[in-house]
């Protein structure tokens, strides 16, 4: 399906569609430079000499929402939990597939059940368990995310490990490797494509997750970016639209940077995750 009629027409058509697609984001960026009273009254006007406020909204937004701290905690949670999930679930998946006895099979079944369960089912009790175990902080959330997010990762990894010939494991064993060296030096490098897939899916989920940290973490001390944004809305009688616009733009910058840097992997990861999930 290579040739296309009216190629130029379609290029123009999609170019216009892209402009329309980016419009909501552009609108927020434009408004982030306007005084707060002008945002609600004339959202579609460009800033002019009277309405332009420079970076005021950004400064106020960072102060009111505690954005910088939230950024750090989002980063700590996302990076730490993703690393822990990758390590923990890849090891578990390999063990499950290779051992494949009754226990391993029922363990896999439990992980698959986790895939189906919506967060609302456990939100109240999970917050209680987290609190009881003293895990209501960003580092404790690493453990919680490993637990609640294990399903998808184990599912993708077991699917992948099943495709690795067992002769590879056996060859390593004959060469005198124990299970630990076999896994880390032989199996894990082979699993690289699935590791990238899972990493992408987890990062997209963890970075944007609102409800789990909101309920399970002590949010007086720790906020993530989505919590900081929501806090800006909830904390005051009337929303400071200027500060809100500034924070929305700031919240999008890391995401767009991440996208530009690793777009290829992201799209591959999404496709691989969907085919299997």
């Amino acid at each position: 399906m290579n040739e296309v009629k009216h190629g130029r027409f379609w290029t123009v058509f999609f170019a216009l569609l892209c402009v329309a697609y980016l419009f909501p984001i552009a609108l927020v960026v434009v408004n982030s430079f306007k005084g707060k009273v002008y945002i609600a009254s004339e959202p579609f006007a460009l800033p002019n000499a009277e309405t332009f406020v420079g970076l005021d909204n950004y400064v106020r937004g960072i102060e009111l929402s505690g954005f910088l701290e939230a950024f750090v905690w989002s980063l700590v949670i996302t990076v730490g939990a993703t690393a822990l999930i990758l390590l923990g679930t890849s090891m578990t998946a390999w063990w499950i597939v290779r051992v494949n006895n009754g226990f391993a099979k029922s363990l896999l079944g439990a992980f698959l059940l986790n895939l189906v369960v919506p967060f609302q089912m456990v939100m109240f009790t999970l917050a209680w368990v987290t609190d009881r175990l003293g895990l209501s902080n960003p580092f404790g959330l690493w453990v919680i995310y490993l637990g609640f997010g294990a399903g998808l990762a184990v599912f993708i990894f077991t699917g992948f490990v099943k495709g690795i010939p067992i002769e590879l494991d056996e060859a390593a064993l004959i060469d005198g490797c124990g299970p630990v060296r076999t896994f880390f030096q032989v199996i894990l490098p082979v699993m690289k494509p699935s590791l990238i897939t899972v990493a992408i899916l987890e990062v997209m989920w963890l970075w944007n997750d609102y409800l789990l940290p909101y309920l399970s973490m002590d949010i007086k001390k720790y906020k993530t970016i989505p919590i900081a944004v929501q806090y800006l809305k909830g904390g005051y009688g009337s929303v400071d639209m200027g500060a809100m616009m500034g924070v929305l733009v700031l919240a999008m910058i890391p995401v767009v940077a991440f996208y530009l840097l690793s777009q290829k992997h992201i799209i591959k990861g999404v496709v691989a995750g969907a085919v299997k999930g």
Binding site: G88, A110, V117, I144, G147, F148, A150, G151
Partner: peptide
């Protein structure tokens, strides 16, 4: 291999569920 993840899974899913 399976221990740590299973323990976290108990805390983060099985018990709350």
């Amino acid at each position: 291999f399976a221990g740590p993840t299973t323990l976290a899974f108990m805390i983060g899913f099985v018990v709350p569920f």
